[in-house]
Every structure is written in C-alpha cells, then in structure tokens.
C-alpha cells in the first residue's frame, strides 16, 4: 500500500510540474504585452519599459521560468497587476467559499446519484428506470447557469424562500446554510445526474457478471447480492468518473457563483480575465491545478481501498 501511495504521489508531482510549465508558456506565448494591456495604448514607451522591469518581464525567459516555478512552489505567486495585493492572499480570501460550495455539492451529488443509479439498474426497463433515465438526462443537459436561473426564479424570486444574492456575508450558521442552499443544490443536482447514469450502467454491467450469478446460486438474498457483491465492484468505475467529473464541477461552480452572485474562485477568475490580470490568472491556474491533482490523488487512494487488485499492479 505504501508503495502504491508513493507512486501516485510521484505521478501527482509530475502532473503539477507539467501543468505549471504549460501555464507559464501559455500566458507568455499568447498575444498581448501585459504591460501594454495594463497601461493602455496611450502609455509612453518609457512607462511601459519601467513596468516591464517591475514585473520582471525584461528578464530572460529561463530566469522568468525559474522564478515562476520556485515562487509557485514556495507560495509566492506574485502580486495582482490590478489590485496590487498578493495573489495568494486574494485567492485565500475567496477559496473557502468555493471549497464549501463544491464540497457540499460533491457529497450531495454522490449521496443522491449512487442510490438513484442502483435503483434504476435493479428496476431495469421498468418505470423507476425510465423516470431516472429521463430526469438524469435533463439534468445532464442543463447548463449550470440555466438550472441556476430556474432555481433562482422559483425559490428566491417567486417563493422568496432563499436570498437572491448569496453574498457570503451571513455570520450565523443558519444564515450561511440559507445562502449555500440554492447554489449547492444547483451543483449537486447536475452532479447527481452524471453519477446516476454512470452508476446505472456500471451496475448493469456488474449484475451480468459471473460472480453475481455465483452469489445467487448459493442462495444469497437479492438485497445482499446488490449491496454487498455488486455495489463495491460497481464503485470502481464510479470512483474513476467522479474523479474525472471534478473538472466539470469546477467549471459549473464558476457559472453558479455568477448566477447566485457568490464570492469564490469563479468570480475572481472572471474578473481577472476581464482585466487581463496575468499574475492573478497564473495564480488561479496554479490553484486549480493543485485542487485537481489533490483530488485525483484522493481518487486513486479511494480506488485502492475499493479494489483489492490495485495494490498489486
């Protein structure tokens, strides 16, 4: 097991390094001189040169690269070109909001999706299966901003059950919960749609396996066959998909944060894009990569727990 963790950790480090390199070059290869972008077309050559020096843009690319990598690993992600505050600080200010939102959505999405998928598979080609399939396909098709707007219209504007703006100002626990309810539900429902479909097809696959027939042949009750023999096997592909789904979840969280006007990484990156805040963008990409790499690592470890064969590979 230790060897397995070590190998996955090594892989995570390599991925992180590769993405950091990619980020560095993407930001530099794309058109537009950051100094010019910040100062506008009218700025004099001297002012631009001065800013370029201050930003370190006049140094050789290799030096810039080394500074960037060392900085990124050491926690120094530079200062925002717009707000002049350290990128790290800006990110850390809003990170808890995004983490809270996505973590709740992740848990809810799995808690709804896995049982729904099992239920559909067990009742294959009967009413529960048809209903689950259609509902989940609609959930899968709705862009996060569409479902978000519908939730907002119904539960915040028409029914006034929840605040229209989930601004992250609430101080009480119930207040925070009320603010979190709609955005988290929005993300969770879309995720549940994915998880339901994957669980259903994985479960159907597993239920047709020889070892399920073996379990039935020895007289194990149907519910034990499903929940003990089949579910753990079916979780192996489901865990993989949940790991891959993380990218979509992060994308959807950006849209959700905009719809519900909620502080978080999403609003931060949209602001940085609009203002061409390159250092901020770099920092954002690093944090996103970190999150993705960490979750993939977690997925791999869960994988090792679910499937006894993994440790030997």
């Amino acid at each position: 097991m230790a060897g397995f963790v070590f190998r996955r950790l090594g892989f995570a480090v390599v991925t992180l390094f590769a993405v950091l390199t990619l980020v560095f070059f993407v930001v530099r290869i794309l058109p537009g001189d950051p100094a010019m972008v910040i100062l506008g077309d009218q700025a004099s050559a001297a002012t631009i040169a001065a800013l370029r020096t201050r930003l370190g843009l006049d140094l050789p690319v290799t030096t810039q690269y080394a500074r960037f990598i060392l900085g990124a690993l050491g926690g120094d992600w530079g200062t925002s070109m717009v707000t002049r505050r350290p990128v790290m600080q800006e990110v850390l200010n809003v990170l808890p909001h995004t983490l809270e939102l996505t973590a709740v959505a992740l848990v809810l999405g799995i808690a709804i999706g896995v049982p729904a998928g099992v239920w559909a598979a067990v009742n294959r080609n009967r009413i529960p299966d048809y209903v689950t399939r259609i509902v989940s396909l609609v959930g899968l098709s709705a862009p996060a901003f569409v479902s978000g707007i519908v939730l907002l219209l119904v539960f915040a504007i028409a029914l006034s059950w929840f605040p229209v703006i989930s601004g992250g100002q609430a101080t009480t626990f119930t207040g925070r919960l009320r603010e979190l309810a709609l955005p988290a539900t929005n993300l969770a429902l879309i995720m549940a749609a994915y998880v339901t479909r994957v669980t259903r097809s994985a479960m159907l696959e597993v239920l047709s396996q020889d070892y399920v027939r073996t379990a039935r042949a020895k007289g194990v009750p149907a519910r034990v066959v499903v929940w003990r023999h089949a579910l753990r096997n079916c979780l192996i592909p489901v865990v993989t998909v949940i790991g891959l789904y993380l990218g979509i979840l992060i994308g959807n969280s950006v849209l959700t944060e905009i719809v519900f006007n909620r502080p978080g990484l999403g609003k931060l990156i949209v602001g940085a894009l609009a203002q061409r805040d390159y250092t901020m963008l770099q920092g954002m990409m690093v944090i996103y990569t970190l999150i993705v790499v960490l979750v993939n690592l977690a997925t791999d470890l869960v994988y090792g727990l679910v499937d006894p064969r993994v440790q030997f590979k």
């Binding site: 020889d210 039935r216 020895k218």
Partner: peptide, 21 residues
Amino acid sequence: ARGRLAGMIFQEPMTSLNPVL
C-alpha cells in the same frame, strides 16, 4: 432452496468469484 438443495459450479473460475471479497 438454492445452495441448500443443489450447489453449482461454473465454467469460468477466473470470473465466478467476486474480486473484492
């Protein structure tokens, strides 16, 4: 009745046992 009145073994021993138990 299954397993008590009759037991059964199958062709594919590689896939007939549950891999996670």
